[in-house]
Design a protein around this nucleic acid. Structure first.
Length: 809
RNA sequence: GGGCGAGUGGCGGAAUGGCAGACGCGAUGGACUCAAAAUCCAUUGAUCGCAAGGUCAUGAGGGUUCGACUCCCUCCUCGCCCACCA
């Protein structure tokens, strides 16, 4: 059988769908009457429209959500299934620097290509709701949310470290750092502190943790978020560090450590500070630039060298299990507040400034890392009895606290291509929020997107834009020139779709129409990669909870059910990448095999959530299957007048009744599998049905219709084509999903497995509901059973109803 | 280093406490053909046996159970994420 002309069929129906005057995939706009049907909001993680174009991994998620959307539409649900573009970000900017094109133009081109590619897969999006995070009408509201955060004290400025390329004189992303050097220019990278905007996500830590319990998310994602938030109970204990000059005691010369084990305090044998810890600078007395005279530290050179070295190591490197490094601050001692013992003080870069207090007390007897360190540097390891936690804390005036691994969210980027942070800075009056009526603060045009050589955004160079009047005093002020991170736009985009069409968006004076929000939220199915577990998914939950607090939304959580898709690896089992040369381009696959074959194959490859490698031969199986369906129904459609009168027989032994049963089993299997995102087994069930139908002497039109409907969510073009071929004029989107008859599926008999000592020795067909006595009687009469039992005595019999009987001898 | 997953035929996978290998790919043999492709039919975990049938087998080792791919423990290997890639 030759393959059907998928190219022609697919183009034909894509055209019909695009033009369709009934707007099959459109849902009611804000202000329009909402249908009272039950709803499903089925959301894809929207793509970053990269220059590479659509990836087969995109095709995988989007096909999955498309199947579910089509299924629920046929089940009578009001389905919202939108798509948009997460279009701010680094690659567009880097490309702009290289080619001198405006990122806006790059994004426009890429979006167009992505959209065409998505449409070539036959995905049923409500395109009238399309959004783009770089659209000023869009980022106006991203900025608006920032203003609300600022007004509630949840956005603040503080010094935080960035990767500073010493050659380019610019801040670079983690991704652009390779082994301590800048990936682009090869210059050395060091950590440098910069004043940046920070969002207080830690204020929501407890709620973000608590509310995970109510979410229908994969347990592993919830677990990742729990660990990321990293709640731990412990205490802050202060160690005095006597003034190195030996004169008066000062509160400055003490160090607070966070410990989860205050009960081990008696066994502490040394104290470790992060190299950046402010106490280290104080001890070195750096500000006088006369370190050596006023400090007690005897090994200044060594200490300074170590601090300098740490600057060049990333956080990850510092925590890696290579040899632990550290330097003792010779001459400095910390006093254990419990027993007044003098402890040596070290600096080591495995202690991080931004976790806990940036300082630890080391108890080598109880902590593995401390012991390793102690063994390497020959520090004492002592075993002292544990003391009751409350007693310790009371005795040393410690403070019980809850500590989180979660850190506040650094929200500034020294970049052009992002949302400008809507703040005006006045030297006299401080930070002023831009007035809401002045939003959006639009990105101005710049001549080039190159870094400025100072740690600031290219926006800083546009004087006309930067210089403004202070809103309070009217004096000379400047705009904030940092932009927001790419995550900002994706924190609320599921709400942006509810703003509706371009027309209703422009008209709207609110972030989201309350009616629409009440009806559509929460998102029922949110589908995307597990790699966002601790970033986007946490950031979006944080913003949503904030919007809940200020009365914008009525739900506490944005995404009710989360579904993860796994990576599609190259044929070599490696992650697809240009440099490996193992990238599969979906355009080629669509051209050579058809969109329906691509969709079917990607869903058939394995469980949605698993990583799986692309097998260039595997797709022919999917294509072969579709061609067989096309051949069978297509050829029979010509004779439809003859077969439509065919009457099914009632006789249960008749072929026709068998196929009836298979059909209903398949309807059930496919329905249940779609609802549970198990597409690989759903497709396998369709194949089994097809194999059964092919063996039939005659094809009943009713059976064709059922098969077509079941196939439709997976291979919509072919299904719609065949639907037309058998004489139906409707669009399948409006057809009802088949129901199964439980009576037709019910089995009357089953295969009873007979085991002896747990090993299968015989199998017989018996009636469902057979009693243990009867099963025993029949089994013990079987030749096979007699042979295996011999003259051994049955000690025990295990009977599992409608399944097996096991004789223990 | 930390966190989260996964290991089943030649390959992708199915079975989540009860017949291991559904469905598909590939391979082998056959039909059709001058021939090839396509298609159709049959076989296809390993091993012993003429056969009936047996034994072994789900990364390795142990445990729980009448019974373990499935649950528990130890180990090995691989994948993903780690806060400025998205």
């Amino acid at each position: 059988m030759a393959h059907y002309n998928f190219g022609k069929i697919e183009k034909k129906w894509q055209k019909v769908w695009a033009k369709n005057k009934h707007k099959i995939w459109h849902t009611a706009m804000p202000g329009q009457h909402l249908i009272s049907n039950p709803k499903h909001y089925i959301l894809d993680m929207f793509p970053y429209p990269s220059g590479e174009g659509l990836h087969v991994g995109h095709a995988e998620v989007y096909t999955a959500s498309d199947i579910v959307s089509r299924y629920y539409r046929m089940k009578g649900f009001n389905v919202l299934h939108p798509m948009g573009w997460d279009a701010f970000g680094l690659p567009a900017e880097n490309y702009a620097i290289k080619t001198k094109t405006h990122p806006r133009e790059v994004v426009k081109k890429n979006v167009q290509r992505f959209k065409e590619q998505l449409q070539s897969l036959g995905l049923s999006y409500d395109w009238q709701r399309e959004i783009n995070t770089t659209d000023p009408e869009y980022y106006k509201w991203t900025q608006w949310i920032f203003l609300q955060l600022f007004k509630k004290g949840l956005a603040y400025e503080a010094e935080t470290p960035v990767n500073w390329c010493t050659q380019d004189k610019t801040v670079i992303a983690n991704e652009e750092v390779a082994d301590g050097y800048c990936e682009r220019c090869g210059g050395a990278v060091e950590r440098k502190n910069l004043k940046q905007w920070i969002l207080k996500i830690t204020a929501y830590a407890d709620r973000l943790l608590e509310d995970l319990n109510g979410l229908d998310w994969p347990e592993r994602v919830k677990e990742m978020q729990r660990n990321w938030i990293g709640r731990s109970e412990g205490a802050i204990i202060k160690f005095k560090v006597p003034m190195p000059t030996g004169r008066q005691e000062s509160s400055k010369f003490e160090v607070s450590v966070f410990t989860t084990r205050p009960d081990t305090l008696d066994g502490a044998t040394y104290v470790v500070l992060a190299p950046e810890h402010p106490l280290v600078a104080s001890l070195l007395n750096v500000k006088n630039q006369s370190i050596s005279r006023r400090t007690k530290i005897k090994n200044i050179e060594e200490v300074l060298n170590y601090i300098e070295r740490s600057k060049h190591r990333s956080e990850r490197e510092r925590q890696e299990n290579k040899e632990k490094t550290g330097v003792e601050l010779k001459g400095v001692k910390a006093i254990n507040p419990l027993n007044n013992e003098e402890l040596p003080v070290w600096i080591a870069d495995y202690v991080l400034l931004n976790y806990g207090t940036g300082a630890i007390m080391a108890v080598p007897q109880h902590d593995e890392r401390d012991r390793e360190f102690a063994e390497k540097f020959k520090l004492p390891i002592i075993n002292r009895p544990l003391i009751n936690i409350n007693e310790v804390i009371k005795k040393v005036s410690g403070k019980k606290i809850v500590n989180y691994k979660l850190r506040d969210w650094v929200f500034s980027r020294q970049r052009y291509w992002g949302e400008p942070i809507p703040i005006i800075k006045c030297e006299k009056c401080g930070n002023q929020p831009v007035l809401e009526e002045d939003l959006p603060v639009k990105l101005p045009e710049v001549k080039n997107y190159e870094p400025t050589g100072k740690a600031e955004s290219p926006l800083a160079g546009i004087e006309k834009w930067v210089n403004v009047k202070c809103l309070k005093c009217g004096g000379q002020a400047k705009r904030e020139t940092n932009t927001m991170p790419q995550w900002a736009g994706s924190c609320w985009y599921y709400l942006a779709y509810l703003r509706g069409s371009q027309k209703s968006k422009v008209k709207s004076q609110k972030l989201v129409d309350p009616e629409s929000e009440k009806y559509w939220l929460p998102v029922d199915f949110y589908i995307g990669g597990v790699e966002f577990a601790a970033t986007h998914l946490l950031y979006a939950r944080f913003w949503h909870k904030f919007l809940y607090d200020i009365g914008i939304v009525v739900t506490k959580e944005p995404f009710k059910k989360l579904i993860n898709q796994g990576l599609i690896l190259g044929p070599d089992g490696q992650k697809m990448s240009k440099s490996r040369g193992n990238v599969v381009n979906p355009d080629d696959v669509v051209k050579n095999f058809g969109a329906d074959s691509l969709r079917l194959y990607e869903m058939f490859m394995g469980p949605l959530g698993d990583a799986k490698s692309w097998d260039p031969r595997g797709i022919v199986g999917s294509q072969r299957f579709l061609s067989r369906v096309h051949g069978l129904i297509g050829s029979h459609a010509k004779m439809k007048s003859q077969i439509s009168n065919f009457k099914p027989q009632i006789n249960p032994n008749d072929q026709n009744s068998k196929i009836e049963k298979l059909l209903h089993q398949t309807i059930r299997k496919v329905s249940e599998d779609i609802e549970n995102f198990r597409f690989n087994t759903a497709i396998s069930a369709l194949m089994i049905l097809m194999n059964g139908i092919e063996k039939q002497p005659l094809l009943e039109i009713r059976n064709s219709k059922l098969l077509i409907k079941l196939l439709f969510p997976f291979a919509p073009h072919l299904a719609q084509e065949l639907w037309e071929k058998i004489g139906s004029k409707t669009l399948l989107d409006y057809e009802e999903w088949p129901k199964w008859d439980p009576n037709l599926i019910k089995e009357k008999t089953f295969q009873l497995v007979i085991q002896i000592n747990g090993r299968m020795r015989d199998i017989i067909v018996v009636d469902i509901g057979i009693s243990q006595e009867e099963a025993e009687k029949i089994s013990l009469n079987r030749e096979q059973v007699k042979k295996w039992l011999g003259n051994q005595k049955v000690k025990k019999t295990i009977f599992v109803k409608d399944r097996l009987i096991n004789f223990i001898v």
